[in-house]
């Protein structure tokens, strides 16, 4: 990002005589780059780097009830492997997030496609309509699902009044599936928008060319549209996958006894259990877990898109 910004500002700077401060800035590319970046950089350092540094430092300390022992140790990292729950829970959280990501992308793609290709007038209205649920807080959206899926909820009372069921369905709420449904909806806009943007950017003449060369709608979609929209799909996947792994509010509210995720344990370590160092170490394992998954995903995505664009060419 930094390099890009520097390069961009360098490209625009035309050599022209100047003096003083502006001369300094004109002469030094890096100065222009960093000045442009400085507000963002400042926020990043204060809001990101400092907490991450604190987290890392804590993870090498230990806490005995109320006192933090600042002797350097790997004890917390070792503890992660001593009890199988942490690893299992991390895997479970990653699995839930992966399902959420997949579900959201599959459900959102048609919506984005529709907006990019079928909606001709009032696109802005559609965009706003999609974001309407996001004008309320995340928590409210989670609660909304509690009402929809609940014992006396919208689905159950609807089915009962239609006479399809006699007793309310109980498998709807308080299980991992409820967590997946809730998260898939809660993050939908973050998926629709990037996919929409990448679909919107596709040069329509490419689609015409594909048709001229004899591609039907399905193969045209698979060989041209889908590969070209991959950047949006990949971005969307990352937008959803990364934050949902560590979520703890949704599992707490709709997950019941089986829907607990790694975020709940981390939260408990920082709160009730009073063990910040272990909580920090768990967070760091979680970050590594996510990083590994994302790298693996990007690798696979790259292989697929390469294959796709080869076919398309």
């Amino acid at each position: 990002m930094a390099n890009k910004a520097i390069a961009a500002s360098a490209a625009r700077a035309a050599p022209r005589p100047a003096s003083g401060v502006s001369a300094f800035f004109l002469k030094h590319e890096w100065a222009r780059g960093y000045t442009l970046l400085s507000p963002t950089l400042g926020v990043m350092i204060i809001a990101m780097c400092v907490p991450v540094f604190m987290l890392t430092a804590h993870s090498f300390w230990t806490q005995n009830y109320l006192t933090i022992d600042k002797t350097f140790t790997f004890a917390n990292y070792v503890q992660f492997w001593e009890k199988e729950i942490y690893f299992k829970l991390l895997v479970k959280s990653i699995k839930i997030s992966a399902i959420v990501t997949f579900t959201t992308v599959v459900l959102a793609y048609p919506m984005a496609y529709f907006m990019a290709f079928k909606v001709k007038k009032n696109k802005l209205v559609w965009l706003i309509l999609i974001t309407v649920p996001f004008w309320t807080s995340f928590l409210l959206r989670v609660f909304a699902w509690k009402i929809i899926l609940g014992f006396n909820g919208v689905i159950n009372s609807g089915l009962i009044s239609l006479g399809l069921i006699q007793e309310p369905l109980e498998f709807l709420l308080y299980n991992p599936t409820a967590v997946i449904i809730t998260l898939a909806h809660a993050w939908a806009a973050f998926v629709i928008l990037p996919i929409y943007v990448s679909l919107e950017k596709i040069d329509r003449s490419l689609l015409e060319a594909a048709t001229d060369l004899g591609d039907g709608p399905v193969s045209r979609f698979l060989r041209v549209t889908l590969p070209l929209s991959m950047p949006g799909v990949i971005a969307a996947c990352l937008f959803v996958f990364i934050p949902t792994v560590g979520d703890y509010v949704t599992p707490k509210l709709v997950g019941g006894t089986e829907g607990i995720m790694i975020g709940n344990i981390i939260q408990s370590q920082f709160g009730k259990a009073n063990n910040w160092p272990l909580g920090s170490a768990l967070s760091i394992y979680m970050v590594f877990g996510i990083t590994l998954c994302v790298l693996g995903f990007l690798l696979v995505a790259r292989l697929i898109t390469k294959g796709g664009s080869l076919k398309a060419s």
Binding site: K83, K92, K272
Partner: peptide, 21 residues
């Protein structure tokens, strides 16, 4: 007592975490 309380919390957490994995 603080240290026992922590053990209770961890025990309860652990059992909840294990269910459904």
């Amino acid at each position: 007592p603080g240290d026992i309380n922590t053990k209770y919390i961890n025990l309860f957490n652990e059992i909840q975490a294990m269910s459904g994995t």
